[in-house]
Design a protein around this nucleic acid. Structure first.
Lengths: 259, 259
DNA sequence: TGACGTCACTTGTCCTTACGAGTTACGACT
DNA sequence: AGTCGTAACTCGTAAGGACAAGTGACGTCA
């Protein structure tokens, strides 16, 4: 290390030095970092040490490395896609829960039968290993290229009681809402937001960069008597998307606050 | 590799084999994986290759490695802490926006002056580099040990117009809501949820495990005329916390649906 | 009995060497 | 001029060796 002694292992010192250089602006976003060979010379360390330092910065999401080209400072752009949930009461006293019509289906939806896990069972107020109708979709927002994975789950017993849902398990959820509302049901929603690292197949399907978590949304639609009817899951890369809940006050119609 | 040939590099084959063994249940959650030496023998590869495979699984959040002890399958437990936003109208026609009173302050709040970034400026409908009052807190939920970082930001010009906010910039946000409501303001909220990898200081402050993203919540409180008054940011490890929005229908009081 | 030191195990760090593979530019050949 | 091959760069993979550092069990000593 040609620079000041820092705490920790050598590769951490190197990583810290590069990190500071990035955050201080010495290396601008999207610019090319020195090559491994140059970093070896600059800090007087071996190649594994340099690569270890670079691996740490990749895990932090600070840089992107492209085979044969070099390491680039990741432009810490904000999400380009806002999933807006506008929660308000119109003058007619209805809640609004838009379904995000921006999405297009990249493939034909895949219908199947499944069973509740501990997780989905809890959300649907069912035990584990209960039978479900399922439907998976791969969605794309054409304006930003953002990909997302969508899943609809409907319990067997709900499909019996509310035949609307059993007819076409791969119908778009927005159609379910419309049909149920026309049928006299008063719906309420519960939406849970989690974040986690993607599984390898999720990384591949959504073409996620390194060190990119995914937002995992689970929306449960409840019937009048608070019985869970439908569980929808949406998974999307957190580098592209954010979720926004806008709660407007009494009788004031929802207004766009965007610049 | 003593097993079937797979696509990709050697270390990826090893990683895939271990991953499958974990997901299939051969290695139970919280159980000890074979040591590096055992894995070297089992797959007939060198130690760097084994370590590379293990590094991949760490980045996926599948395993935890403890120096001197070994590698453990991470128990994929669900979040232990649900930040509930119950959005409903009471019979008096008021919206409810609880502030999460579970949190306790781990240290004295730190007040300071700051300037808007591109990000915070956008949320507060201000240009970049406008003056702000700021206050940072380190919060702890004593029942789960979950740590979170909280930040309050109030524009100078808002503090002039609404003197309540300037008096005590480190007052608890819930107190702001109460004071403003008593003063006749009709508040509305906009809450944005993002996820990203933590910076090193965030990892240290919140004691986050490897490969753990954070949830980043930004809540803007709007005044009657839709002017942004307060920006609150909450950062919390996504391994511990989730956010839940419950939107209940007309006049039906919010009910707990938890088991 | 209790405290402590040692040893055998674990992962962490760091080095050297070698070759494979993607990218780009330059130059020679057609 | 256009095409294509090669050379020189980049990062990716893999092996080997050596020592440091954390952990826990066991045995010795006071």
């Amino acid at each position: 290390m040609s620079e000041i002694q820092r705490p920790g292992a050598l590769y951490q010192q190197v990583a810290a030095a590069i990190r500071e250089a990035i955050l201080s602006g010495e290396f601008a976003p999207d610019s090319l970092l020195p090559s491994e060979a140059q970093l070896m010379a600059r800090y007087e360390v071996s190649r594994p040490t340099v690569r270890n330092a670079i691996a740490a910065l990749r895990a932090e999401g600070l840089i992107d490395v492209r085979h044969g080209k070099g390491s680039f400072v990741r432009s810490s752009g904000q999400p380009v896609l806002t999933l807006e949930r506008r929660i308000s009461r119109t003058t007619e006293g209805k809640f609004v829960m838009p379904n995000g019509d921006i999405w297009q289906e990249a493939e034909a939806p895949a219908a199947y039968r499944a069973r509740t896990t501990k997780d989905t069972g809890h959300l649907l107020q069912l035990d584990t290993d209960e039978a479900l109708f399922g439907c998976d979709r791969l969605l794309i927002d054409p304006s930003t290229g953002t990909r997302a994975m969508h899943r609809t789950l409907i319990p067997f017993e709900v499909a019996e009681i509310v035949p609307l849902l059993a007819e076409e398990p791969c119908k778009r959820p927005a159609a379910f809402y419309r049909l149920l509302t026309e049928d006299g049901h008063k719906l309420s929603w519960s939406e849970t937001v989690r974040a986690r690292m993607p599984l390898p197949d999720e990384r591949a399907t959504m073409k996620l960069p390194d060190a990119t978590p995914i937002l995992h949304l689970a929306r449960v639609t409840h019937d009048t008597d608070n019985r869970p009817l439908i569980l929808e899951e949406l998974r999307v890369g957190a580098d592209r998307a954010e979720v926004s809940y806008r709660i407007t006050a009494d009788k004031q119609p929802a207004r766009r606050a965007r610049a």
